[in-house]
Design a protein around this nucleic acid. Structure first.
Length: 159
DNA sequence: GCCAACGTTGGC
DNA sequence: GCCAACGTTGGC
């Protein structure tokens, strides 16, 4: 029996990998997460979970599109590759440290949802929303069904 | 187990 | 490019 669908937000630097890139390739292994909390969230993911695709470190940070979790967590092979910038010398194939999931493209948002605007709804989103929690730098974080609904309702609202 | 030093994230 | 906040490392 499948667990209830859950929701997540995943950050990427668009210069590195953007929602347009995801649209082009269709499905992408989410390589390079080297933070234990973010990894642990990916381990909780199930195929079919919803993903908010967030652009960080760019001119207008915000949510740009939607994706879907396309695999259960499995070892990130870049950790074993000495030539990769994500190489982790302490990881072995017998004892991998880093897992990832595949993310499948769903769609672009009708308009990007800038961080500024998301922050304007901080009260409704609640304090457990890690994206706008002070000092939080998590690159993979959970989103509640209510938060998901609220954020997507903004897509159709006037900026 | 403490904590200073260092590296990284990411908004601005 | 700056810098605040955070996570990790490693000496002790």
């Amino acid at each position: 029996m499948a667990a209830r669908k859950r929701y997540w937000l995943m950050k990427s630097e668009p210069g590195d990998f953007s929602i347009d890139d995801l649209a082009r390739v269709g499905t992408e292994p989410w390589t390079g997460v080297r933070n234990y909390q973010a990894r642990n969230y990916m381990r909780q993911m199930q195929v079919g979970d919803g993903v908010l695709f967030y652009h960080s470190n760019c001119e207008v940070p915000g949510i740009y599109g939607l994706g879907e979790v396309a695999s259960a967590a499995y070892p990130d092979k870049t950790q074993f590759d000495p030539k990769s910038k994500y190489h982790d010398e302490k990881a072995t194939r017998e004892q991998p440290r880093w897992d990832l999931v595949d993310v499948r493209y769903d769609r672009h948002l009708a308009r990007p949802l800038p961080l500024d605007e998301i922050r304007a709804h901080a009260d409704a989103l609640g304090e457990d929303f890690a994206l706008i929690r002070k000092g939080s730098r998590l690159s993979v974080l959970p989103v509640s069904a209510a938060q998901w609904k609220l954020l997507l309702s903004l897509e159709k609202a006037k900026p």
